[in-house]
Amino acid sequence: MKRKYLITLSLFTILFFTSFTNMIPKKHNAVVVLELFTSQGCSSCPSADVLLDKVGKEYQDANVFTLSYHVDYWDYIGWKDPFSQKKFTEKQRLYAQKFNDNRIYTPAVIINGKEHFVGSNRLKMYAKIKEYKEKVSTNTISLGAIKQTANNIQFNYKITGDLSNTKARVVLAIQERTTEVKSGENARRTLKNNNIVVSEHYLTEVKKTGKYTINIPKIVTKNDQLTVLLILENDKLDILSADKLVVGF
């Protein structure tokens, strides 16, 4: 009788701890997303553009994703940045509101949606990447099954972890483009920009699995290599996870 009781107790213990373990969210390696707000009309931005390119190449296999958002508030100086969009300026303002900051500036980097610093600050950039890479995530994203036409890109996605109070955005970026700037603060300079965001849209609903089609804007040429990213964030704009696909014509 005692032996039967011990066996029953042992089985109960195993079931209890198994159930408890399943309730604990799985932890995964951290994802780092660096969003640089920049402009070809800003004289202090090229050094930040170069640093972001360098960092992106160094960490390309380490879940570190770099994006350049070109704002439009420098266009008045004399050079209209061909990649600038008003919606990216508004995006930066949303971050400023989150950080209780009454100003926006370039070059500015937002890391994982959680804090900002000057985008040309090399020491801080590497220190922050190291800091955020040591964190863990309870969500993962994986992308696949590309179907591409001249006008759009379709892909499948899978997201793990709790999706409560989250939203997801799809970002399309040109991997690299060189521009001869003819006027403004960077007149007579040839600038190289990387991971230039040309389109960004939020999913209407975040599901564990699904597919999405993103349209290719006219600014993209047949010589451009493209990157598609899916970024998961919470309602505070903190980035929880991300993944990317590299595509081209």
Rank of each mutant, 00 (worst) to 15 (best):
K2H: 10
I7Q: 03
I7G: 04
T8F: 11
L9G: 15
L11V: 11
F17K: 09
T18Q: 12
S19F: 14
N22H: 07
M23A: 13
M23R: 09
I24P: 02
I24S: 02
I24N: 11
N29D: 15
A30P: 14
V31R: 05
V33M: 01
S39P: 13
Q40D: 05
G41H: 07
C45Q: 01
P46E: 11
V50L: 08
V50T: 11
D53Q: 10
V55L: 00
Q60T: 05
S68F: 06
H70S: 06
V71N: 10
V71Q: 03
Y73I: 03
W74C: 07
Y76Q: 05
W79F: 08
W79T: 01
D81S: 08
F83S: 00
Q85L: 12
K91C: 15
F99N: 12
N102P: 04
V109F: 00
I110C: 12
N112H: 01
G113F: 00
V118T: 13
S120L: 10
Y126R: 05
A127R: 12
I129W: 00
E131M: 05
Y132F: 14
S137H: 09
T138H: 11
T138C: 04
N139M: 03
N139A: 04
T140W: 03
S142K: 12
A145R: 12
A145D: 14
Q148N: 13
T149I: 05
I153D: 02
N156A: 09
Y157V: 03
I159T: 11
G161M: 00
G161V: 00
S164I: 10
T166Q: 14
T166P: 15
A168T: 10
V171M: 04
V171D: 02
A173D: 02
I174G: 10
Q175Y: 03
Q175M: 11
T178V: 09
E180L: 15
G184R: 00
N186F: 06
R189Y: 07
N193H: 15
N193F: 06
N193I: 10
E200P: 07
Y202R: 06
Y202G: 11
E205N: 14
Y212T: 12
T213G: 15
I214T: 09
N215P: 12
P217E: 00
K218N: 15
K218W: 06
L226N: 08
T227L: 13
L232A: 08
E233I: 05
D235C: 09
L237R: 13
D238M: 13
D238W: 08
L240N: 05
V247L: 12
G248H: 11
F249R: 01
F249Y: 09
F249I: 05
